[in-house]
Amino acid sequence: MGSVRTNRYSIVSSEEDGMKLATMAVANGFGNGKSKVHTRQQCRSRFVKKDGHCNVQFINVGEKGQRYLADIFTTCVDIRWRWMLVIFCLAFVLSWLFFGCVFWLIALLHGDLDTDYKDDDDKSKVSKACVSEVNSFTAAFLFSIETQTTIGYGFRCVTDECPIAVFMVVFQSIVGCIIDAFIIGAVMAKMAKPKKRNETLVFSHNAVIAMRDGKLCLMWRVGNLRKSHLVEAHVRAQLLKSRITSEGEYIPLDQIDINVGFDSGIDRIFLVSPITIVHEIDEDSPLYDLSKQDIDNADFEIVVILEGMVEATAMTTQCRSSYLANEILWGHRYEPVLFEEKHYYKVDYSRFHKTYEVPNTPLCSARDLAEKKYILSNANSFCYENEVALTSKEEEEDSENGVPESTSTDSPPGIDLHNQASVPLEPRPLRRESEIGSRR
């Protein structure tokens, strides 16, 4: 089982795998120059863009038009607004034209077009017409509009002379109601789609790998820009990579689940303020055997998904993003964004995407760390350097704002901070800030 798991979770494809794949392509008759073999020097295209759209195009789909027309309502909801407006206008105009032609044909076959009612006051002739005051196609078209929109100006009306005319008036009224219901329903469904809710759900630009509770963890940050909550919010993550099976089958995008606390339930989050999602790199993680150097040379993509129900409509929305291997910062942490004021908490989104480097973060893999092949620094050293990194950030910001350097908390000259780390230190809580992250 261990060997199978290692093969499945191998992220960085070796040169031997690339040569094996190329040999397979030639042997199977696919070596026509169009096949692409992804190596370390040639990274694959992003499968999920940063804005959440999937970078996929469908080609050679059989009976595409028929399949889309069979699900016309979903098609109308998914198309762009400009095409929705075109369909909206065409549906009414074509129905008016169709029934206008029908009423014109009825008048033509009944002989109503030969009668001039402007110079004739004989009401008996008017009563013999199928539709009064309809003696041309324009008049028939206007009567069709008046019937379907129930305008009723009063000059044109159907008589009991022709039952077919009466039937067409009733039929057009029913068709008009159906068109109204369909168009209004599609427009309302399109307006109520929770897709735009994703514009106020954000992911951090970069993911980070750092120590948390004595273990290497992959972390990324999510935030909600609205005050309205995302009900039943939960997160998922998958690692996408290519691999070759033991039988020699090439899988271009193998999807591997990344555990973010599904078993323990901590994948469900209360997204009021930005939260750091934590994936513990343990023996079940696809990143277990990867060191910093392996991450730098790897070719994979981590897709992160945030799902929840919109509070206003109770409709489920899904926000997506992805991180390539070069977008994962090893040995970094996110800057705090949640600050405790006197009577409330304040979230500073200008710090949302910012990170700071944490010294002495192990550069080895989580496996080597678990097997004690890498000796961690003293816990006080880690905490102290973590505090120094934050303090230096604040000093830089104070210097930019014009604060005198004498007010900063610099260490005395001639003292090495790293050498001082081995000395037991008193706890130094942050002056006014605390970061709330997901705790395992």
Results as ranks from 00 to 15, higher is better:
Glu15Ile: 03
Val303Asp: 03
Gly31Ser: 08
Leu390Cys: 15
Gln293Gly: 13
Met219Tyr: 04
His229Asp: 13
Val131Asn: 01
Cys383Gln: 14
Leu218Ala: 05
Val187Lys: 02
Ser144Glu: 01
Ser124Pro: 03
Met315Trp: 08
Ile251Trp: 13
Leu69Lys: 13
Gly154Met: 02
Asp296Phe: 06
Arg320Trp: 10
Ser246Asp: 13
Leu376Ser: 13
Ser411Tyr: 03
Leu417Ser: 11
Thr313Ile: 04
Ser204Phe: 01
Tyr117Asp: 00
Asn60Tyr: 05
Arg367Met: 01
Pro427Val: 08
Ala192Phe: 13
Ile277Asn: 00
Phe103Met: 05
Ser273Asp: 05
Ala421Met: 13
Val403Gln: 13
Ala314Arg: 10
Glu335Asn: 03
Gly214Val: 00
Asn378Glu: 14
His234Trp: 04
Ala192Lys: 04
Trp81Val: 05
Tyr153Ala: 06
His343Ile: 07
Thr138Gly: 15
Trp96Leu: 15
Ser10Val: 05
Thr317Ile: 05
Ala421Lys: 05
Arg226Asn: 11
Arg320Lys: 12
Ala370Gly: 03
Ser381Lys: 05
Ser408Asn: 05
Ala210Gln: 06
Arg40His: 13
Pro336Lys: 15
Val260Pro: 00
Gly33Val: 09
Gly62Trp: 06
Ala298Cys: 08
Ala139Met: 04
Asp410Asn: 09
Val347Asn: 08
Phe92Leu: 14
Pro424Asp: 15
Ala181Gln: 06
Tyr68Ser: 14
Val166Asn: 01
Ile59Pro: 11
Ser3Gln: 07
Ala210His: 07
His234Phe: 11
Glu426Arg: 07
Gln57Glu: 14
Ala139Ile: 00
Ile87Val: 10
Ser13Lys: 05
Glu435Leu: 04
Arg243Trp: 10
Glu357Ser: 06
Leu21Lys: 12
Ser350Leu: 09
Pro336Asn: 15
Gln255Pro: 10
Asp71Ser: 14
Ser264Ile: 10
Ile415Pro: 14
Ser321Gln: 15
Ala370Gln: 09
Ser95Ile: 14
Tyr349Pro: 13
Gly331Phe: 00
Val61Cys: 14
Glu249Tyr: 06
Phe270Thr: 09
Leu390Ala: 14
Ile258Glu: 00
Phe339Arg: 13
Leu94Pro: 00
Trp104Gly: 04
Arg82Thr: 06
Cys217Leu: 08
Ser45Gly: 11
Tyr250His: 15
Ser411Met: 11
Asn419Pro: 06
Val12Ser: 15
Asp296Ser: 05
Ala312Gly: 11
Lys118Asn: 00
Ser285Trp: 01
Tyr334Leu: 03
Phe47Ile: 08
Asp121Glu: 11
Ser381Gln: 11
Val423Asn: 12
Gly308Val: 11
Gly29Trp: 02
Val423Ala: 15
Leu253Thr: 14
Leu105Lys: 02
Glu433Met: 09
Arg156Tyr: 03
Val260Gly: 00
Ile266Lys: 12
Ala165Pro: 00
Arg432Ile: 15
Arg212Val: 08
Val126Cys: 05
Leu230Gln: 10
Lys50Asn: 05
Leu369Ile: 14
Ile305His: 07
Arg8Ile: 05
Glu396Arg: 08
Arg67Glu: 04
Thr276Cys: 05
Val48Asp: 00
Ile436Gly: 14
Asn7Trp: 07
Ile178Arg: 01
Phe155Asn: 13
Ser136Trp: 00
Ser35Thr: 09
Glu400Phe: 10
Gly2Lys: 03
Phe47Met: 13
Asp263Ala: 06
Arg212Ser: 03
Thr200Pro: 14
Asn378Lys: 08
Gly52Glu: 01
Ser127Tyr: 08
Tyr9Asn: 15
Met24Leu: 11
Lys292Cys: 13
Gln318Lys: 03
Phe99Thr: 00
Cys89Gly: 06
Thr313Tyr: 06
Arg212Thr: 03
Phe73Gln: 15
Lys190Trp: 11
Leu430Pro: 07
Asn386Thr: 12
Arg432His: 12
Asn32Phe: 05
Ala186Thr: 15
Ile79Leu: 10
Ile174Tyr: 06
Cys364Ala: 03
Ala233Phe: 12
Val37Met: 07
Thr391Ala: 05
Ile328Phe: 01
Ala366Ile: 02
Phe47Tyr: 08
Gly308Glu: 06
Leu225Cys: 11
Cys43Phe: 05
Phe143Gln: 02
Pro427Gln: 04
Trp96His: 02
Ser45Lys: 09
Ile281Asp: 00
Arg333Gly: 15
Pro427Trp: 03
Gly62Lys: 15
Ser406Asp: 11
Ile328Trp: 00
Arg8Phe: 05
Pro429Gln: 11
Ala70Ile: 03
Pro362Glu: 01
Ser13Met: 08
Cys157Arg: 04
Gly185Glu: 03
Ser392Phe: 05
Arg44His: 12
Tyr334Thr: 00
Phe143Ile: 03
Leu290Tyr: 10
Ser242His: 12
Ile11His: 07
Glu387Arg: 03
Gly33Gln: 12
Val166Pro: 02
Lys20Cys: 09
Leu201Pro: 04
Gln41Arg: 07
Val175His: 04
Glu340Gly: 05
Gly261Tyr: 10
Val231Ser: 11
Ile305Gln: 12
Ile145Gln: 03
Arg197Trp: 07
Ile11Asp: 15
Val126Thr: 11
Met315Ile: 07
Gly223Met: 12
Val235Gln: 00
Thr355Leu: 03
Ala366Lys: 01
Tyr345Thr: 08
Ser399Phe: 13
Cys89Ala: 06
Ser411Glu: 11
Val37Trp: 05
Gly111Lys: 03
Ser350Val: 04
Val202Arg: 12
Leu369Trp: 14
Pro194Gly: 12
Pro404Ser: 13
Arg8Met: 06
Asp282Ser: 14
Lys20Asn: 13
Leu324Asn: 12
Ser392Cys: 08
Asp116Phe: 15
His110Glu: 11
Phe143Val: 07
Leu105Val: 11
Pro362Phe: 01
Ser321Thr: 11
Val388His: 15
Val12Trp: 04
Arg428Pro: 13
Glu249Asp: 07
Glu16Asn: 05
Cys217Phe: 07
Ala233Glu: 03
Ser173Asp: 03
His332Tyr: 09
Leu430Gln: 11
